[in-house]
Write a protein that binds this DNA or RNA. Structure first.
Lengths: 135, 135
DNA sequence: GACAAATGACACAAGGAGAGTATCATATTA
DNA sequence: TAATATGATACTCTCCTTGTGTCATTTGTC
């Protein structure tokens, strides 16, 4: 059970690195050298981050990526959800057909509260806060 | 991201039902009728619960399953870990080769603390507590 | 003892998700 | 216009989830 999948993990590291470079564009080449990730996979990750408007991309010679948002506006939760969809620990594997008492289900209620905690924790961690402590 | 996989979910419901029947043996037939789970899959789930000494099985005519432990000794965490292995949210997808600063990694630290919370919450929910509130 | 009724032990299979690759199209700028 | 970036997209490979199916073994009843 992974809370953070590989692509999300790559994304976190890449975004932190890009954030550190400020307004300087960072190319895929640079990231590959620096972080030793598989090039094609990283490219896909960056493209997704671009589409979801967390990064801004520049094509052509001298192109690359910069942040599209300020580092304190990018949370771990946000990055995770870009790749894994909305964080849901509480989805019942049985839909209505099997489990008629969804509202009363104590298991679901407990998992709901766990989920709330996890979401709020992940929301509180921003790229800015990660950089501050020297990642 | 599922916290509780399907087999663990089946297990929780089956164990609760069996617990309600006290010392009476419960057969697969009965469980299938009652809970509408696929028969062969449920059989597998029950066999696993038997092997991990949460249930006790009785072969032959009139056989079935009873609890091997008292309901307050069976936690949600225990049931989940039988099927999904030790609950670990905090395993870094990068081992040492890529991520040299495992100890300093703030992401890992945060996830560690989230994991501790989740584990302790799930440990606190027992079959006894589920039954008390009328599952 | 024979038979029926239960569980035990496996081996197999379909489907999807995670992780990664490969190729061509498009934009930029020197 | 050629070189250098990213964009779009389709494909592969493997493992995990969610099952199914078959035969063996045990046990209670007639």
């Amino acid at each position: 059970m992974k809370l953070i999948t590989r692509d999300a993990d790559y994304a976190i590291r890449a975004v932190c690195f890009i954030a550190k470079q400020g307004t300087n564009k960072v190319s895929v080449e640079e990231l590959v050298r620096e972080m030793k990730m598989p090039r094609p996979f990283l490219r896909k990750v960056l493209q997704i981050l671009n589409k979801s408007k967390i990064l801004k991309s520049y094509k052509g010679q001298g192109g690359g990526f910069t942040l599209a948002l300020s580092p304190d506006k990018i949370s771990l939760l946000g990055l995770i959800e870009v790749f894994q969809g909305k964080l849901k620990l509480n989805e019942c594997t049985f839909k209505k057909q099997v489990c008629p008492n969804m509202r009363l289900c104590r298991v679901k209620k407990k998992v709901d509260s766990i989920q709330k905690f996890v979401v709020s924790e992940l929301q509180g961690i921003t790229v800015a806060s990660l950089l501050k402590e020297g990642m």
